[in-house]
Amino acid sequence: MAWFAARKVLQTLMVLLIVSVASFSLLKLAPGDPVQLMLGSEYSPEAHASLMAQLGLDRPVAEQYLRWLGGFLVGDWGTSFISKAPIFQYAFMEALPVTLTLAASALALAVLIGVPLGVLSATRKDTGWDAAVATLTLTGTSFPSFYLGILLIWIFGVKLALFPTLGFVAPWNDLWGGIVHMTLPAITLSTYFLAMIVRLTRANLIEALEQPYIAAARARGEPRWRVVWVHGLRNVMLPLVTILGLQLGALLQGAVLTETVFSLPGVGQMMTSAVLNREYGVVQAGVMMTACLFVLTNLAVDLAYPYLDPRLRPR
């Protein structure tokens, strides 16, 4: 068992290493360098050469990578090239919590709305309710998130002035402020998952409701809500958790657009501006954090199975 765990950890570390090499080389292969951008209107070949040397960008790429890796492993993530932002503080302490809050709120919203709607669709299969839910959620999913975001800003931010449309307030500092600031972004990001969750819940629940144990439960005279929400839904949880775990990538992609539209200083915004400005250190930090997030999520999903399905529990 210990050997198995060790192998799993080793595999994970290899994956992370490969990811870091790949992202570093990809960015280095992209045309343009950070110094030309930094110098802006003050560009001259001399200034360029001097700044490249100052930043160590004149060294061989392999050396630059190893320097970065060495620093990264001991927690010295360096500073961004020109604004000298301490990268650990920026990426891990500031940007990551924003994105995690956004992702968690969107996911929570999607589950809280999507599962009941799925149940509604399944229990009233092929009725007007079913069609209405399908139409509604598909419409939501079909909106590109940047467009839906701007639409929400226009209606609820500008016209009705009900919600703020910019910035992040940490809910752990100011719960109400955090909720108000996160409402529109979370709605925007959740629509993509909403339809998926509804369809998944509906399909699996319909299947589950045809199983003999449901009939048995009914025969025992259990109330209908208990049959559906306890016996039926329990069997929907497994595929739902699997899919949500796998969709983390899509969630982070969606977060990039949502963060930009709502001016949230999260990982998405950090990564786009870092890639455009060729801030190698910041990009690496972002990639590594995201990769770790993936690995950890998959681990969490694996660990959740035994709780959701007793048959998977070790005897």
Partner: peptide
């Protein structure tokens, strides 16, 4: 100073009096 990359988001903020 609120750093806003997306001009249309800034426009919405200034029109709604948030900035």
């Amino acid at each position: 100073i609120l750093i806003m990359k997306e001009a249309s988001a800034a426009i919405a903020a200034v029109m709604s009096g948030q900035v």
